[in-house]
Design a protein around this nucleic acid. Structure first.
Lengths: 139, 139
DNA sequence: AATAGACGTTATAGTAGCTATAAGGTCAAG
DNA sequence: CTTGACCTTATAGCTACTATAACGTCTATT
């Protein structure tokens, strides 16, 4: 199975597959006589696993750890749960930050109307003055 | 006012100030005889504006547009409202994506326990099999 | 006057997770 | 034997910074 077929089956781009290989998420596959990457069923399963993890927002580093856990079956799977739990908390923090943004943007919206020009614009004035609590936390 | 003082007043890093200058958000300031950047009150206000926008998640490109609108007071401020509206919709889309992630991660969590090793791990098995609807939309 | 240390300067590379481009090699069909 | 679809590597770009190196300036203390 060549890289294009693999990518199409899984639903990603060929460059992405090579990118994962370069990051060590996928091993170096066998090569055809013409130096094309030649994938098998295991590679396909691994790629599916990676894409499923990515769809959940797991980082490449997190996926690397999951793969290590997978390949050392004697390890306790508590670590897997912990990773998911941590990631879920990350997601919840992000949501909270977005919720606050949403509120601030809604306040900002419609502070002016089409009858005014930008030198009287309430939005611009608010942006110039207000100290919004930052969501991109850098003190 | 030197760059360090400016940055400290606003609450960002000096490198960040130079970064904004390099992106054209801040103009090239006056220089002291010793070639240090020398900022005035207007520069400070501009930087405050930029940081307020960033705290709301506006991109540098969006901020560039807002500054253009600011500097051309004859333009209608409807455009400003539209930009905020678009950004708000972005934020809402991101929240929806995160909400779905959250649900999936919660389903995943605790599929296994500390009495099992990773070769029996329900989480890993789920990740290998399930086709999650992607939040990082690249079909 | 010399020197330490706190600040400033530029240039360059790195971060995450890809995407885009160039310049070329392989293979099957017509 | 050429066209076109696919593959190869290498390199640069994206966002919004952060980090590093190697050097210049200014103030204060010795």
């Amino acid at each position: 199975m060549k890289i294009g077929e693999l990518a199409k089956t899984i639903g990603c781009q060929t460059v992405t597959v090579r990118f994962y290989e370069s990051k060590g998420l996928l091993g170096h596959p066998a090569r055809t006589p013409g130096n094309y990457r030649n994938y098998n069923k295991e590679d396909l399963e691994r790629l599916a696993f990676i894409r499923n993890c990515r769809a959940l927002g797991l980082t490449i580093e997190e996926i690397t750890r999951l793969i290590e856990l997978q390949e050392n079956p004697e390890l306790l799977c508590n670590d897997v749960n912990q990773l998911i739990e941590d990631h879920l908390m990350d997601v919840e923090r992000q949501m909270e930050a977005l919720r606050q943004l949403q509120g601030q943007l809604r306040t900002l919206r419609h502070r002016c109307d089409s009858t005014r020009t930008s030198n009287q614009c309430g939005v611009l004035q608010a942006l110039a003055v207000e100290r919004f609590k930052t969501a991109t936390a850098d003190n």
